[in-house]
Design a protein around this nucleic acid. Structure first.
Lengths: 349, 349
DNA sequence: GAAATCACCTAAAAGGTTTTCGTAACGTAG
DNA sequence: CTACGTTACGAAAACCTTTTAGGTGATTTC
């Protein structure tokens, strides 16, 4: 198991050529005879030679490695972003060094240092909420891209979901299906995601000449809050015919409470969620129309822009990424069982 | 931003000593005068010198890096394992290279090659189900540890959750709360997790002199199947007073259907789930008693054993990791709101 | 027949660090 | 004064690869 690994010297020796020639043969450079090249390739195969990327990196100054610094991997949103990024990296010859700072600034500093020690070519920082986070770009001699949580320095490269656009999609869909008394229940007011979406709701309703049914109800991101808010809302304003919820958990709670109060979804009240967290949105009854923030794509795009930045083609600014409306039964009665999806272009970079 | 990074040569020059002395001073070796050492340290600080880990690795043959090969990061189980492992690595000076093979054997081979090219010190392979997976240990010149999915070679080092033990915990708890007609609904029979748990149920009931209420119902890991199975079960065997479900989704579906059929949980029927997936187990009504497989700990332990293996102290075999019973309201009526937890020792390595 | 061209290959340096060995300087014992 | 041990430091090798510059022999050109 622990046999010494073959080096290019071994390959060259076996092929009966010099190290330099072996290198050229292996890397497809053209001042080597075809027969010689084959000799070298055969030798390499026989020894199952793998070039030492450390040595290459030392020489070239490029490690083909990027650091992925996440502030809280436990949460739901970091994972898809990370997944999309890993996906983009895997496609190239890049590898990703994963560091989870667990929301601790000290630990983050520590990780940044070790990543730099390892001479990563770039850094991608993924946050856990869409609230801006401190920039690290100036402290670091390699390009940095921020995903999900933007940097607080607008000159950095950030990718965030278009929460306002998502809310617009949701509300337009409700209006298009004939709803006129639309309420909005969402999470804590301290979340930029919540206030952005609320703003999107507000503006879209105004554009359509409608008034929002009641104030935006800020609470928690939980099912419990969805139930509670449903009780409040249905009691105060019985004429409501649609509600847009700040996430799928709130929506699931709302649907449950509404049914217990004898309101039929979607016939009496249409419900739209947010996140397209499928374990919830596919299991509510009726299944849940929701906004998919397409986080995997966000991560993918962020990674690609990190590549570009490494190549010297940075794209500064906060880029807001388009979301998708996923229509299911909670807004569209009578539609066949398979959900159909609506994608939306534009709005972002 | 792209200023050349300081090397030990720069530090040595600034301190007015040779490179060798600088190295010794920085690494705390003792044949260097105290005043000289301070000189070097000051110079290093001034240049904010960071040793190049590539160069160190090239020389020492140790990269202090491990590869984490996951077969399907999208799934629910890989993540906590990965998290626990990352946690263990972060504590030391190890870094983890993340590769998601997405269940594709070709891609897995590719990743293994590039990881070896990068001279990782070890590999941790995390699977997506507890079904054994092909061993890669002989193809690889570094230690390998398998987490969640064991290797099919029993001489390898594997860590799996103790599904049988988890089932025992669940059934013993039901018996302890006075239930005697206990049914078992679970996922597809193709999952070893499902059959292991079923076996645990069977044996525990026999030991208690009880007969299982009906055959084990194999189906899907979904809420839908939980509802369906509930309908079948409650119709066929109205005397059932407890059900142990193969996961929390099935349990959530069961609870829902049971309530709709007018059975009170836990008064008429006690329900136990599996996984302690908190988004579900804390949101069902009543909240769900369930088995927590403690995957984060599993990942942590696997990582620690990888360290040991790298140091030459491997621990071959399939180690089965203990689970925890988390008691909530679906089995224990009238208990105050905060859940109390029971941990169990033993049974594993 | 000498010079130039060409095809192919090799020696050596570079990259940053650690470690081994060598070498001063100095003090102490004989 | 010589022999030796100790202390503090420096030169150079080693890790593995790529690249540059150079070298060899054969073939072509005048």
């Amino acid at each position: 198991m622990t046999t010494r690994r073959a080096t290019i010297t071994d390959v060259a020796a076996l092929a009966g050529v010099s190290v330099a020639t072996a290198s050229k043969a292996l890397n497809g450079r053209d001042d080597v005879r075809a027969t010689t090249r084959q000799l070298v390739l055969d030798a390499a195969a026989q020894l199952s030679f793998q070039p030492n990327l450390l040595a290459q990196g030392l020489l070239s100054g490029q490690t083909r490695t990027v650091g992925l610094l996440t502030s809280d991997m436990v949460g739901r949103f970091g994972i898809p972003v990370l997944l999309g990024a890993e996906n983009a990296f895997g496609a190239g010859e890049m590898a990703v060094l994963l560091c989870d700072a667990r929301g601790d600034a000290i630990r983050e500093q520590h990780y940044i240092r070790t990543l730099l020690s390892r001479r990563v070519d770039g850094l991608i920082v993924v946050g856990e909420s869409t609230n801006p986070r401190p920039s690290i770009t100036k402290d670091v001699p390699v390009p940095v891209v921020y995903a999900y949580a933007p940097s607080d320095d607008p000159a950095d490269v950030s990718f965030v979901p278009d929460d306002e656009g998502g809310a617009r999609l949701a509300v337009r869909h409700l209006i298009a299906t004939g709803r006129t008394r639309i309420a909005h229940i969402t999470g804590p007011v301290t979340y930029k995601a919540a206030t952005d979406r609320a703003e999107g709701v507000q503006e879209t309703l105004e554009e359509a000449g409608l008034a929002q049914a009641g104030e935006t109800l800020y609470g928690a991101w939980s099912q419990r809050w969805g139930r509670l808010a449903a009780d409040m809302l249905l009691l105060n304003d019985p004429a409501i015919d649609a509600v847009f919820c700040g996430n799928d958990q709130i929506a699931a709670g709302f649907i449950e409470a509404a049914r217990e109060r004898g309101r039929r979804v979607p016939d009496d009240i249409a419900v739209v969620g947010y996140d397209n967290w499928e374990v919830l949105s596919e299991e509510t009854r009726p299944t849940l129309t929701t906004i998919d923030p397409d986080l995997e794509r966000l991560g993918h795009t962020a990674a690609q822009h990190l590549f570009a930045a490494i190549d010297g083609r940075a794209t500064p600014g906060v880029h807001s990424m388009p979301t998708r409306l996923v229509i299911r039964d909670s807004t569209a009665p009578g539609i066949p069982d398979t959900p159909w999806q609506v994608s939306r272009g534009g709005s972002g970079a």
